[in-house]
Simulated assay, not measured.
Amino acid sequence: MIRVEDLPAAHPGRRLLTGRTPFFAAPTEPRCSFCAYVPRSWTPEARMSVLVAVHGTGRNVGALREGLIPFADRHDLIVVAPLFPVGIDDPDDVDNYKTLDAHGIRFDLVLLEILEQVRVRWNARVDKVLLSGHSGGGQFAHRFLYLHPDRVSTVAVSAPGRVTPLDDTLAWPEGIGDTQRRFGITVDPVAVARVPVLLVVGAEDDGRADLAAMGDPGRSRPEELDRLAASLTGHGTTIRKVVVPGVGHSAAGTQPPIVDFFTGLLAG
């Protein structure tokens, strides 16, 4: 793998590997991939921090990355946007990554491998990253926090349709009771509580009509977020909850509170 610092300053590879990068295959699961945004101010000495932004069911990775570019430029950090595609071993499976494992793939480990590649290629700081996710990405983000609280400095969870409470009487993904058997990891609520969490949803983001159309009346997204908030705060996590007026199920609509949240933490 080429390290950007090994390329001469005038080499065209520098232009390709800074700014908006191409998509790269994930190291051991090439059906998954990622793109990045690397500020043009990048130098190997900067050891830039990383923000991981996880897409929703629609996989609109380009727009997700694009919306975070001004934030990345202001704070000299790298945006990493993984792509977990539809149709791995099941042509109709749109949900695979949301519960972290499906079809023999551990999507949490895929992300950790991506971060190692980011560390090597850009000499980035990936020991602890900022993590955000919208909709299906919000499902991924809070579950990744449960299994890897030591790898995140803060997490923003936007509009998940389903959540996993910290309930050790229920099996994953309804709870955390069997994570040792399933993942080889016992969730530690004390470690989870050390990570500040933003919970955000649009005020107009109900979501029950979509669920009803699939035969499951379910809970609204605000109700699901309330369940997650109650579980996290009940175990000592410091959360901030934001309901965005006039916004439906929109990654762009919930992104401003996420940027504000991360900005406040970086300033602190």
Score class of each variant (00 low, 15 high):
Val4Leu: 15
Glu5His: 12
Leu7Asp: 08
Leu7Ser: 09
Ala9Met: 10
Arg14Val: 15
Leu16Thr: 12
Gly19Thr: 08
Gly19Leu: 07
Phe24Ser: 02
Phe24Glu: 10
Ala26Arg: 10
Pro30Thr: 03
Arg31Glu: 13
Ser33Tyr: 02
Ala36His: 00
Ala36Lys: 03
Tyr37His: 07
Tyr37Gly: 08
Arg40Lys: 12
Trp42Ile: 08
Trp42Asp: 08
Glu45His: 04
Arg47Gln: 14
Arg47Ala: 14
Leu51Val: 06
Val61Ile: 15
Gly62Lys: 11
Gly62Thr: 13
Arg65Asn: 10
Arg65Tyr: 06
Gly67Ala: 15
Leu68Trp: 15
Phe71Tyr: 14
Ala72Arg: 10
Asp73Pro: 04
Arg74Gly: 12
His75Ser: 02
Pro85Met: 11
Ile88Ala: 03
Ile88Cys: 02
Asp93Gly: 09
Val94Glu: 15
Asp95Gln: 13
Asn96Pro: 01
Leu100Gly: 06
Asp108Arg: 07
Asp108Ala: 14
Leu109His: 13
Glu113Tyr: 02
Ile114Cys: 07
Ile114His: 09
Leu115Ala: 08
Val118Trp: 04
Val120Trp: 12
Arg125Ile: 00
Gly133Ala: 01
His134Trp: 01
Phe140Arg: 01
Arg151Cys: 07
Thr154Ile: 00
Ser158Lys: 01
Pro160Leu: 06
Gly161Ile: 03
Thr164Asn: 03
Pro165Asp: 05
Ala171Cys: 03
Pro173Tyr: 08
Pro173Ile: 01
Gly175Tyr: 02
Thr179Arg: 09
Arg182Asp: 04
Gly184Arg: 09
Ile185Ser: 08
Ile185Cys: 10
Ile185Met: 06
Val190Pro: 00
Arg194Thr: 15
Val200Asn: 07
Val201Tyr: 06
Asp206Pro: 06
Ala213Arg: 15
Met214Ile: 03
Met214Thr: 08
Gly215Ile: 06
Pro217His: 11
Gly218Phe: 07
Arg219Glu: 13
Glu224Phe: 02
Leu232Pro: 10
Gly234Tyr: 05
Lys241Glu: 08
Val242Ile: 13
Val242Leu: 04
His249Val: 06
His249Arg: 09
Ala251Glu: 14
Ala251Arg: 10
Ala252Met: 11
Gln255Glu: 12
Pro257Asn: 09
Ile258Ser: 08
Gly268Lys: 05
